[in-house]
């Protein structure tokens, strides 16, 4: 029951993060919204795993956290550099 309440309590946070991703207004708001949404997904997977007695979901949640991190790094690199090309290609 406690885990179920936790899952339900996560939903307002997810709705708020989604709202920030939709409304914007700046790009950084959207990046931050997607990143925190990924964090909520990780939390949700972990709590759902404990709620349904499938505790190996924690491993999956950890992998999701890694994917979320790499995705955010890629988006931020896109902001700084403008593309994903190699250094040597830009010099030419």
């Amino acid at each position: 029951m406690m885990f179920f309440v936790t899952v339900i309590a996560l939903f307002p946070a997810m709705f708020l993060a989604l709202g920030r991703a939709i409304v914007g207004p700046t790009l950084y708001d959207r990046v931050l919204a997607v990143n925190s949404f990924g964090t909520f997904t990780v939390l949700m997977i972990a709590v759902l795993g404990f709620m349904t007695d499938q505790t190996d979901f924690v491993d999956i949640a950890l992998t999701y956290a890694l994917i979320n991190f790499i995705g955010t790094i890629a988006v931020l690199k896109f902001f700084v550099v403008g593309d994903f090309g190699y250094e040597e290609q830009r010099d030419q």
Binding site: L18, A21, I22, G24, R30, V31, A33, F37, I45, Y64
Partner: peptide, 18 residues
Amino acid sequence: GAVMLTGIFSLLSALWFL
């Protein structure tokens, strides 16, 4: 913004598959 929202949609559908 649409690209960011498709990322969120993928996260949600991954959660749904789980």
